[in-house]
Amino acid sequence: MTRTQWAALTAVVLALVFAGTATVASAARDDGTAAASAAAPSSDSADAGFARDMAVHHQQAVEMSFIVRDGTDDEDVRRLAYDIANTQANQRGMLMGWLDLWGLPKVEAGTEPMAWMAQTDGMKGMEGMDHGDAGHEAHDGSLMPGMATRTELDQLRKARGKAAEILYLQLMTDHHKGGVSMAQGCVRLCSNGTEKSLAEGMVAAQQSELSLMADLLAERGAKART
């Protein structure tokens, strides 16, 4: 197994391990009380906000991964794209399923994306991103930090070969940095133990993929945009 294959496999395994053990971790965080674990969060809670926003964030990662699959024959990039699409599609299903389980809407009218992160006291994540929406303004289809714009997605659709690989890796690097910050916010702010465990798994897996993408960019004589 090559270094690239091993790194990609490690990222997927980390996500699955954290998601698979989430129920056990939830019991510990809820102090063993059935009432705490059974209580559904409110619609304006960090738990619900994270589930909604990360589901949208993940959906774009899946979309970009399918786009690059058709834009290059490079096996390393296609394998990474497959792993990201598969992992984030599964996680998105979990997030949407929790909203259904809690009886909460998947879209909250009148609520801005990332509003749930304003519940913190101005702390910064590992990427130096303010959790109170990081000063991000929705523009050209970019609803949250790290998300690509419509223009960037169009550029990715048109790119081929090495150009497609580099652009995908750069866009996905930005995307993962935003996703890691959001997941770290949930670890601090969410009350549901199962969701917090999934968020921890996202942080570990996406940080591993960030390292892999930096290597793949370097192999192509490029680097991350930020």
Rank of each mutant, 00 (worst) to 15 (best):
A61L: 05
H57Y: 03
G122L: 07
A109Q: 04
D130Y: 12
R69A: 14
A48Q: 07
A89W: 04
A38V: 11
M129E: 05
A34C: 01
T72L: 13
R29E: 14
A35K: 12
T120Y: 05
G71V: 05
G71W: 03
M94F: 14
M114Y: 06
L99P: 00
L99N: 06
S42H: 08
G93Y: 04
W116I: 10
A61M: 12
D121M: 00
M54R: 02
Q119F: 06
D30C: 10
T120P: 03
D130T: 01
K124Y: 13
D100T: 07
D74F: 08
D47R: 00
G32K: 04
E127H: 11
G110Y: 03
S26Q: 12
P113H: 03
D53W: 01
A89T: 07
A27E: 14
R29H: 15
M126K: 08
F50S: 01
G71C: 11
D100E: 13
S45Y: 14
A27L: 13
A115Y: 05
D121G: 12
V107R: 07
D130I: 00
W98A: 02
R69F: 10
N86T: 14
L104I: 03
W98I: 03
Y82R: 04
F66K: 03
D30V: 05
G122V: 02
D31S: 03
R69M: 06
M114E: 09
D53A: 02
A55Q: 10
F66W: 14
D76M: 00
E63M: 09
N86R: 13
A109L: 08
P41C: 08
G110C: 05
E63P: 00
Q119A: 07
S43Y: 02
D30M: 13
E108L: 15
P105M: 07
R92C: 00
A46F: 05
D53I: 01
A22G: 11
V107S: 06
A36G: 01
P113C: 12
A28S: 09
A22E: 05
M64C: 09
D100R: 07
Q59G: 02
G122M: 10
M64Q: 10
M129Q: 09
M114S: 08
G103Y: 05
E112C: 01
M64I: 06
A48N: 04
G93E: 14
L99D: 10
G122A: 07
D73I: 01
G32P: 15
G122N: 09
A61G: 14
Q60H: 04
A51R: 01
